[in-house]
């Protein structure tokens, strides 16, 4: 087939996020050669691993056309639990990490219960959880910062085969999530539920259980993200994870997830998180005014979503029936 103008622009639109990413890297690479070093790229992955992991969990929720606003607070509550149990309960670190995961699963299950079994709006349920989890964490810590033993920091700085542990954790999470979404019955049914819950119900899919599961997964991912953040800071501060839910949603959406459900991938979420961090890192490297960062990141989110909606409109146009073929 001849490559017509349509095909080219179509191809461009299909791979819009990748092109955007290449553009960002190219720009900073030209502006500052040190940006392109392997070490710097590893650094970018380390910095964004927490957000990327939570964004993967968020993608599961977005696939069902839901939303989870409580992830930032869950990160904090789990960290507060871990800090308290290590410092005051004198539990071993491994057990404290286990408590974090249990905390995340529990908060997710509560979210899921009210959304799936009580039919409440995800926005409201998880907004309530945002306050409840944040408040519980502040109550446990009495709003005091806690400095953690070095074993925590080692979790963030240790390298295996030259790769930092947070990046390895991210790799395990994204591969597992990808396999769940593409290869398991649950994963494929998730796309069906997100596209049309009524039809999914009629097809015999257990919709409430599916919804329950995505909030539990999101809660678990938030607790893992909390672990990494905690290890990187080596301290529980009262504003840990505050506002993180928005970074996470932005990453997932940049990675191609739709707020209307039925669209999104695990690798997309990671790409989104890495893209945001790359911009932040790149501006740091070129010494840009820090106040400009949020402006640029906001504009990039606009651009990505605009590209995406343009692409969908164009594809819909192309798919329209042609009635007559013009002979000219």
């Amino acid at each position: 087939m001849r490559l017509s103008g349509w095909n080219v622009s179509n191809l461009g639109l299909t791979y819009a996020p990748v092109l955007l990413y290449a553009g960002v890297i190219g720009t900073f690479g030209i502006l500052s050669p040190s940006f392109l070093s392997t070490e710097n790229f590893l650094n970018i992955f380390v910095q964004c691993s927490a957000v990327a992991i939570v964004a993967i969990g968020m993608t599961f929720v977005l696939l069902t056309a839901g939303i989870d606003l409580s992830v930032g607070s869950i990160m904090f509550l789990c960290s507060a639990i871990a800090g308290t149990s290590v410092l005051h309960g004198e539990f071993p670190v491994a057990l404290a990490l286990l408590f974090m995961v249990i905390g995340g699963l529990f908060c997710g299950a509560v979210n899921g219960y009210f959304v799936a079994r009580k039919g409440m709006a995800p926005f409201i349920v998880t907004l309530s959880m945002l306050f409840v989890a944040r408040g519980s964490g502040l109550w446990i810590t009495q709003t005091r910062s806690m400095n953690l033993p070095d074993t925590f920091r080692q979790l963030a700085t240790t390298r295996l085969l030259g790769i930092p542990v947070p990046v390895l954790v991210l790799a395990v999470v994204v591969i597992t999530a990808h396999l769940i979404l593409t290869r398991t019955v649950f994963g494929r049914q998730l796309y069906a539920v997100g596209n049309n819950p009524h039809a999914a119900e009629r097809a015999g899919i257990d919709v409430p259980n599916t919804l329950m599961a995505v909030y539990i997964i999101s809660g678990a991912c938030a607790s893992i993200g909390g672990m990494i953040t905690l290890a990187q800071l080596a301290a529980v501060s009262p504003n840990l994870g505050q506002g993180r839910e928005l970074d996470v949603i932005a990453a997932a959406v940049l990675g191609g997830a739709s707020l209307f459900g039925g669209r999104g991938t695990a690798f997309g979420a990671v790409l989104g998180a890495v893209l945001v961090e790359t911009v932040r890192n790149g501006m740091n490297v070129i010494d840009a005014d820090p106040y400009v960062y949020p402006v640029i990141i906001g504009l990039i989110i606009f651009a990505a979503v605009l590209l995406d909606s343009t692409r969908h409109r164009q594809l819909a146009k192309l798919r329209r029936r042609k009635i007559r073929t013009e002979t000219s």
Binding site: V185, A192, A199, A203, G204
Partner: peptide
Amino acid sequence: NLFPNLSAAENLFIADFPKQRPESLSL
């Protein structure tokens, strides 16, 4: 009652996918 974001095959078997052993993994 079709899901446009899934493939034809997935639509046919959405409620009873053929599974690999062991079935508990539901791969």
